[in-house]
């Protein structure tokens, strides 16, 4: 139901949106941003694809990504019990503050949250759009 112009523009814009979301996630401990914000950008990218190309583009394996994100998050937390003494302790070496590889477990937790929130928003939009297309 969308026109040729909208489809072409979406094709051009979508990779940059995904790149921006991943940038926000992996630079979450250096610049403003983090797992939630980048995940919401990824989810809105999924919403753009659903609106323009229809919900046939939905990937059934998306819920697996959400489970993987939650499990990585919990796994890092439980690993902190064995190496640091309490839940979610920062057991990796901190590094020099300001580098990309610093902050111990914080970048990994941000990645897990971003994966979970992005996949979760995509699933949420998919369920609602599928309901709208199915009803009357």
């Amino acid at each position: 139901m969308s026109s040729r112009i909208v489809e072409t523009a979406t094709d051009i814009v979508t990779p940059f949106m995904i790149l921006f979301g991943v940038y926000i996630i992996i630079n979450g401990h250096l610049t403003p941003g983090g797992g939630f914000q980048g995940g919401v950008i990824l989810g809105s990218c999924a919403l753009l694809i659903y609106v323009v190309f229809g919900i046939k583009r939905h990937n059934k394996n998306l819920s697996i990504f959400e489970n993987i994100g939650a499990l990585i998050f919990l796994f890092i937390g439980v690993l902190g019990i064995f190496f640091g003494g309490f839940l979610f302790s920062n057991f990796i070496t901190k590094g020099t503050p300001g580098n990309l590889l610093s902050g111990g477990t914080i970048p990994f937790i941000n990645l897990a949250i971003g994966l979970k929130i992005g996949a979760g928003f995509a699933i949420l939009f998919f369920i609602i759009l599928q309901y709208i297309e199915r009803g009357d």
Partner: peptide, 8 residues
């Protein structure tokens, strides 16, 4: 923590 962004 080693992270510059305190909110994160």
């Amino acid at each position: 923590t080693g992270a510059v962004n305190l909110v994160s």
